[in-house]
């Protein structure tokens, strides 16, 4: 067993344990911290694949910005532990077997797929950030500009939704 494979299994175990912990924790803040573990481990996996720019963006945007937003909202709303109800027991008994079945189906479909999927990812081959920039600002320039508009609309929407109503 070579070194990249060992690192892969360590990071994959971190991802899966973090995701299971997200499900099992009763308190939203603990779930949020578990999700941060998953995201940092995923950034490590991107580095292992040689996608260093995506790894940096994952840490900065997901681990840094989005999860901080989640933690802020959890603290702002003073979210307590969730209560178990009859409906949640029903969701557990019906949903968990179906979810496991979906996971097994997806994994089996991948494992039985063609050679293209089974090729090894070159750990040494890095994706140059310059090439990503060329692609982003030449071939994908219109979608890129559209995302800036999307962000603008999202900012306006968030302000309109969350701003305190002035009853006049």
């Amino acid at each position: 067993m070579n070194a990249p494979l060992i690192v892969f299994f360590l990071l994959a175990a971190m991802c899966v344990i973090g995701a299971i912990s997200l499900i099992l924790q009763r308190h939203p803040i603990h779930s949020a911290l578990s999700l941060i573990v998953v995201m940092v481990a995923l950034a490590g996996l991107y580095l292992l694949m040689g996608a260093e720019f995506v790894a940096a963006v994952q840490i900065i945007v997901y681990g840094g910005a989005i999860m901080v937003l989640f933690v802020f909202v959890i603290m702002l709303l003073n979210a307590g532990a969730e209560e178990r109800t009859n409906l949640s027991k029903l969701a557990g008994t019906a949903g968990i077997p179906l979810g496991v079945a979906l996971t097994g189906l997806l994994a089996a479909a991948v494992a039985r797929s063609q050679d293209a999927v089974h090729a090894s990812v070159q750990s040494g081959a890095t994706a140059p950030t310059k090439a990503i920039a060329n692609l982003l600002f030449q071939d994908f320039v219109y979608p890129f500009e559209l995302t800036s508009f999307l962000i603008l609309v999202a900012i306006l929407g968030a302000i309109v939704l969350a701003a305190p109503r002035s009853e006049t």
């Binding site: 899966v16 995701a19 499900i23 209560e83 178990r84 969701a91 979810g99």
Partner: peptide, 11 residues
């Protein structure tokens, strides 16, 4: 799959 399970299971 774990995300789907969490989506169904959490309240």
């Amino acid at each position: 799959g774990l995300g789907v399970i969490a989506f169904i299971f959490k309240r």
